[in-house]
Computed example of a mutant assay.
Amino acid sequence: MQGKRQDVAKNVILFLGDGMSIPTVAATRMYIGGEEELLSFDKFPYTGLSKTYCVDHQTADSACSATAYLGGVKGNLGTIGVSAAVGKKNCTAMNLKENEVDSIARLFQLKGKRTGLVTTTRVTHASPAGVYAHTAYRRWESDSAVLKSENDPKECRDIAYQLIFGETGRNLQVILGGGRKNFIPKEEEDEEGKPGARSDHMNLLVDWTKQKERLGLKYEYVSNREQLLNVKHDTEYMLVLSFLIGGGIG
Protein backbone atom coordinates (compact mmCIF):
# COMPACT_ATOMS: atom_id res chain seq x y z
CA MET A 1 0.00 0.00 0.00
CA GLN A 2 1.36 3.38 -1.01
CA GLY A 3 2.19 5.67 1.92
CA LYS A 4 0.57 9.05 2.51
CA ARG A 5 2.03 11.89 0.47
CA GLN A 6 3.73 14.50 2.62
CA ASP A 7 4.86 16.96 -0.07
CA VAL A 8 3.43 20.45 -0.65
CA ALA A 9 0.04 20.59 -2.38
CA LYS A 10 -0.11 22.29 -5.76
CA ASN A 11 -3.75 23.30 -5.35
CA VAL A 12 -6.14 23.69 -2.42
CA ILE A 13 -9.91 23.26 -2.81
CA LEU A 14 -12.15 23.86 0.20
CA PHE A 15 -15.52 22.13 -0.02
CA LEU A 16 -18.15 23.45 2.38
CA GLY A 17 -21.42 21.64 2.99
CA ASP A 18 -23.45 24.39 4.63
CA GLY A 19 -25.28 23.09 7.70
CA MET A 20 -23.39 19.78 7.85
CA SER A 21 -23.08 19.46 11.60
CA ILE A 22 -21.97 16.21 13.29
CA PRO A 23 -25.61 15.15 13.95
CA THR A 24 -26.53 15.85 10.31
CA VAL A 25 -23.63 13.77 9.01
CA ALA A 26 -24.44 10.96 11.48
CA ALA A 27 -28.07 10.98 10.33
CA THR A 28 -26.87 10.66 6.73
CA ARG A 29 -24.82 7.58 7.57
CA MET A 30 -27.81 5.97 9.26
CA TYR A 31 -30.06 6.83 6.33
CA ILE A 32 -27.82 5.21 3.75
CA GLY A 33 -26.94 2.09 5.73
CA GLY A 34 -26.25 2.51 9.43
CA GLU A 35 -23.77 3.99 11.90
CA GLU A 36 -20.84 2.04 10.44
CA GLU A 37 -21.51 3.27 6.91
CA LEU A 38 -18.73 5.48 5.53
CA LEU A 39 -19.30 8.66 3.54
CA SER A 40 -16.65 9.61 0.98
CA PHE A 41 -14.94 12.07 3.32
CA ASP A 42 -15.01 9.58 6.20
CA LYS A 43 -12.32 7.73 4.24
CA PHE A 44 -9.88 10.66 4.31
CA PRO A 45 -6.69 10.04 6.34
CA TYR A 46 -7.24 13.01 8.65
CA THR A 47 -10.22 14.54 10.45
CA GLY A 48 -10.49 17.89 12.23
CA LEU A 49 -13.23 19.59 14.23
CA SER A 50 -13.95 23.27 14.79
CA LYS A 51 -16.17 25.18 17.19
CA THR A 52 -18.46 27.43 15.17
CA TYR A 53 -20.07 29.70 17.76
CA CYS A 54 -20.13 33.48 17.22
CA VAL A 55 -18.66 35.88 19.76
CA ASP A 56 -22.14 37.13 20.73
CA HIS A 57 -24.23 34.02 19.98
CA GLN A 58 -23.85 30.36 20.87
CA THR A 59 -25.54 29.16 17.68
CA ALA A 60 -23.68 30.50 14.65
CA ASP A 61 -25.06 31.61 11.30
CA SER A 62 -23.39 31.36 7.89
CA ALA A 63 -21.89 34.84 8.29
CA CYS A 64 -19.82 34.66 11.47
CA SER A 65 -18.94 31.01 10.79
CA ALA A 66 -17.64 31.91 7.29
CA THR A 67 -15.40 34.52 8.90
CA ALA A 68 -14.12 31.85 11.31
CA TYR A 69 -13.28 29.09 8.84
CA LEU A 70 -12.07 31.37 6.03
CA GLY A 71 -10.35 34.03 8.13
CA GLY A 72 -9.52 32.32 11.40
CA VAL A 73 -11.24 35.03 13.47
CA LYS A 74 -14.57 34.87 15.28
CA GLY A 75 -17.04 37.70 14.72
CA ASN A 76 -20.57 38.65 15.72
CA LEU A 77 -23.76 37.10 14.37
CA GLY A 78 -24.65 38.45 10.93
CA THR A 79 -21.26 40.01 10.18
CA ILE A 80 -18.82 38.83 7.51
CA GLY A 81 -15.09 39.33 7.14
CA VAL A 82 -14.77 41.60 10.16
CA SER A 83 -13.70 41.10 13.76
CA ALA A 84 -15.94 41.17 16.82
CA ALA A 85 -15.21 44.91 17.09
CA VAL A 86 -17.94 45.31 14.46
CA GLY A 87 -21.52 44.96 15.62
CA LYS A 88 -24.43 44.14 13.34
CA LYS A 89 -25.22 47.06 10.95
CA ASN A 90 -22.40 49.22 12.36
CA CYS A 91 -21.07 50.91 9.22
CA THR A 92 -18.54 53.07 11.04
CA ALA A 93 -16.77 50.09 12.61
CA MET A 94 -17.12 48.07 9.41
CA ASN A 95 -15.12 50.65 7.44
CA LEU A 96 -12.14 50.67 9.77
CA LYS A 97 -9.27 48.83 8.12
CA GLU A 98 -8.08 47.39 11.42
CA ASN A 99 -11.42 45.58 11.81
CA GLU A 100 -11.18 43.74 8.48
CA VAL A 101 -10.37 40.05 8.47
CA ASP A 102 -8.57 38.75 5.38
CA SER A 103 -9.83 35.43 4.09
CA ILE A 104 -7.59 32.57 3.01
CA ALA A 105 -8.39 33.61 -0.59
CA ARG A 106 -6.82 37.02 -0.01
CA LEU A 107 -3.77 35.45 1.61
CA PHE A 108 -3.30 33.22 -1.42
CA GLN A 109 -3.70 36.22 -3.75
CA LEU A 110 -0.94 38.04 -1.88
CA LYS A 111 1.26 35.00 -2.58
CA GLY A 112 0.52 35.30 -6.30
CA LYS A 113 -1.85 32.31 -6.41
CA ARG A 114 -5.04 32.07 -8.44
CA THR A 115 -8.30 32.06 -6.50
CA GLY A 116 -11.99 31.59 -7.14
CA LEU A 117 -15.33 30.61 -5.65
CA VAL A 118 -18.08 28.28 -6.85
CA THR A 119 -21.41 28.06 -5.04
CA THR A 120 -24.87 26.55 -5.46
CA THR A 121 -26.42 29.63 -3.85
CA ARG A 122 -26.09 33.37 -4.53
CA VAL A 123 -22.48 34.54 -4.79
CA THR A 124 -23.51 37.31 -2.39
CA HIS A 125 -24.89 34.87 0.19
CA ALA A 126 -23.17 34.82 3.58
CA SER A 127 -21.12 31.65 3.03
CA PRO A 128 -19.45 32.58 -0.30
CA ALA A 129 -19.26 36.26 0.71
CA GLY A 130 -16.85 35.20 3.44
CA VAL A 131 -14.29 34.74 0.66
CA TYR A 132 -14.16 38.43 -0.28
CA ALA A 133 -16.52 40.72 1.70
CA HIS A 134 -16.15 42.87 4.81
CA THR A 135 -19.61 43.83 5.99
CA ALA A 136 -21.56 44.56 9.16
CA TYR A 137 -24.67 42.81 7.85
CA ARG A 138 -25.08 39.71 5.75
CA ARG A 139 -28.37 40.90 4.23
CA TRP A 140 -26.72 43.86 2.47
CA GLU A 141 -26.38 41.90 -0.77
CA SER A 142 -27.30 44.93 -2.93
CA ASP A 143 -27.49 48.67 -2.28
CA SER A 144 -31.30 48.38 -2.12
CA ALA A 145 -30.95 46.15 0.95
CA VAL A 146 -28.71 48.78 2.57
CA LEU A 147 -31.31 51.46 1.87
CA LYS A 148 -34.05 49.25 3.28
CA SER A 149 -32.18 49.12 6.59
CA GLU A 150 -32.05 52.94 6.57
CA ASN A 151 -28.31 53.15 5.98
CA ASP A 152 -26.25 54.95 3.33
CA PRO A 153 -25.06 52.57 0.55
CA LYS A 154 -22.06 54.82 -0.09
CA GLU A 155 -20.99 54.39 3.52
CA CYS A 156 -22.04 50.74 3.85
CA ARG A 157 -20.90 49.24 0.56
CA ASP A 158 -23.07 46.27 -0.38
CA ILE A 159 -21.69 42.78 -0.89
CA ALA A 160 -22.19 42.70 -4.68
CA TYR A 161 -20.31 46.00 -4.99
CA GLN A 162 -17.46 44.56 -2.92
CA LEU A 163 -17.26 41.51 -5.15
CA ILE A 164 -16.65 43.71 -8.19
CA PHE A 165 -14.57 46.50 -6.67
CA GLY A 166 -13.18 45.07 -3.43
CA GLU A 167 -9.52 44.16 -3.11
CA THR A 168 -10.20 40.43 -2.89
CA GLY A 169 -13.30 40.24 -5.08
CA ARG A 170 -11.87 41.92 -8.15
CA ASN A 171 -8.89 39.56 -8.10
CA LEU A 172 -10.90 36.32 -8.10
CA GLN A 173 -10.24 34.44 -11.35
CA VAL A 174 -13.43 32.37 -11.13
CA ILE A 175 -16.80 33.49 -9.73
CA LEU A 176 -19.65 31.04 -10.31
CA GLY A 177 -23.08 31.02 -8.69
CA GLY A 178 -26.45 32.76 -8.54
CA GLY A 179 -27.76 36.15 -7.47
CA ARG A 180 -27.48 38.00 -10.78
CA LYS A 181 -30.20 40.50 -9.83
CA ASN A 182 -27.98 42.04 -7.14
CA PHE A 183 -25.63 43.26 -9.88
CA ILE A 184 -28.25 44.85 -12.15
CA PRO A 185 -30.30 48.06 -11.68
CA LYS A 186 -34.04 47.82 -11.13
CA GLU A 187 -34.80 49.58 -14.40
CA GLU A 188 -32.96 46.91 -16.43
CA GLU A 189 -33.69 43.27 -17.17
CA ASP A 190 -31.23 40.40 -17.33
CA GLU A 191 -30.84 37.85 -20.10
CA GLU A 192 -33.93 36.02 -18.89
CA GLY A 193 -36.08 39.14 -18.80
CA LYS A 194 -35.97 39.40 -15.01
CA PRO A 195 -35.47 42.79 -13.32
CA GLY A 196 -32.45 43.72 -11.28
CA ALA A 197 -32.45 44.77 -7.64
CA ARG A 198 -30.09 47.76 -7.51
CA SER A 199 -31.27 51.31 -6.78
CA ASP A 200 -28.03 53.12 -7.68
CA HIS A 201 -28.49 52.64 -11.47
CA MET A 202 -25.19 50.74 -11.58
CA ASN A 203 -24.78 47.65 -13.73
CA LEU A 204 -21.96 45.87 -11.96
CA LEU A 205 -21.70 43.26 -14.72
CA VAL A 206 -20.78 46.02 -17.17
CA ASP A 207 -18.38 47.49 -14.61
CA TRP A 208 -16.69 44.09 -14.25
CA THR A 209 -16.12 43.74 -18.00
CA LYS A 210 -14.81 47.32 -18.31
CA GLN A 211 -12.48 46.68 -15.39
CA LYS A 212 -10.94 43.66 -17.10
CA GLU A 213 -10.72 45.47 -20.45
CA ARG A 214 -8.78 48.35 -18.91
CA LEU A 215 -6.26 45.89 -17.52
CA GLY A 216 -5.96 44.07 -20.85
CA LEU A 217 -7.14 40.77 -19.38
CA LYS A 218 -8.88 37.91 -21.16
CA TYR A 219 -12.30 37.54 -19.56
CA GLU A 220 -15.74 36.04 -20.12
CA TYR A 221 -19.10 36.82 -18.57
CA VAL A 222 -21.34 33.73 -18.68
CA SER A 223 -25.10 33.64 -18.09
CA ASN A 224 -26.15 30.17 -19.25
CA ARG A 225 -25.01 26.57 -19.56
CA GLU A 226 -24.20 26.74 -23.28
CA GLN A 227 -21.85 29.68 -22.77
CA LEU A 228 -20.21 27.90 -19.84
CA LEU A 229 -19.50 24.82 -21.94
CA ASN A 230 -17.85 27.01 -24.58
CA VAL A 231 -15.57 29.14 -22.42
CA LYS A 232 -12.25 29.70 -24.23
CA HIS A 233 -9.31 27.77 -22.82
CA ASP A 234 -7.17 30.91 -22.43
CA THR A 235 -9.77 32.85 -20.39
CA GLU A 236 -8.08 34.47 -17.39
CA TYR A 237 -11.15 35.77 -15.52
CA MET A 238 -14.61 34.22 -15.59
CA LEU A 239 -17.83 35.56 -14.04
CA VAL A 240 -20.71 33.07 -14.20
CA LEU A 241 -24.04 34.26 -12.80
CA SER A 242 -27.54 32.80 -12.89
CA PHE A 243 -30.67 34.44 -11.48
CA LEU A 244 -31.25 31.94 -8.61
CA ILE A 245 -33.68 33.39 -6.10
CA GLY A 246 -33.00 31.36 -2.95
CA GLY A 247 -30.55 28.84 -1.58
CA GLY A 248 -28.28 28.48 1.40
CA ILE A 249 -28.70 27.74 5.08
CA GLY A 250 -28.41 30.09 8.04
Rank of each mutant, 00 (worst) to 15 (best):
A93M: 09
F108C: 12
L215M: 14
I159E: 04
S242M: 03
S83M: 04
K113S: 13
G247E: 10
G17N: 03
E150L: 13
L215Q: 14
D234C: 06
T120W: 02
K113D: 13
D61E: 06
S142I: 00
G87D: 00
M202D: 10
T168F: 03
V222P: 11
S62V: 00
K97W: 11
G193M: 01
Q109V: 07
E150N: 15
V118K: 08
N95F: 06
Y221K: 15
I80Q: 14
I175K: 02
S62W: 01
N182F: 09
T92K: 10
E192H: 10
V25D: 11
L147A: 12
I175M: 10
V231Q: 06
K113G: 11
E226K: 14
L107N: 08
K10I: 02
L215I: 07
C64M: 01
G72H: 02
R139Q: 14
G248K: 06
L38C: 08
C64R: 01
L70T: 05
K43I: 03
D207W: 00
L77P: 11
G169S: 05
H125V: 02
Q58N: 14
D158E: 04
Y31A: 15
A129R: 06
Q211A: 10
K210N: 12
G81C: 12
Y53N: 15
G34V: 01
G19Q: 01
T119E: 04
L49R: 10
G17T: 03
A133E: 02
V131T: 08
T92R: 11
S127Y: 04
L172H: 08
G81K: 02
R139K: 10
G193R: 02
R170D: 14
N230H: 15
E236I: 01
G87F: 01
T92Q: 15
S50K: 06
K186T: 08
G246I: 10
I184K: 05
K111Y: 02
H57A: 14
L39Q: 11
N11F: 01
S199Y: 02
E226H: 13
K212L: 08
T52L: 09
Y46R: 09
G17E: 05
G71D: 03
L49I: 10
G71L: 00
A136K: 02
D200N: 14
A9C: 11
L16W: 07
L229C: 13
V86L: 03
G87P: 05
D158V: 00
K210A: 14
G3K: 09
S144V: 04
S127E: 08
E220P: 11
D102L: 05
M20A: 13
K232I: 01
I245G: 14
L96M: 07
T67F: 03
K181H: 08
T52V: 04
G193V: 01
M94C: 12
V8R: 09
T52F: 05
E150C: 12
V8N: 09
T92E: 15
S127M: 13
Q227T: 05
G250M: 09
R214N: 09
I13S: 10
W208H: 06
K113I: 02
T120Q: 03
G247V: 00
G19H: 03
V146Y: 07
K212I: 00
D7F: 01
N99F: 01
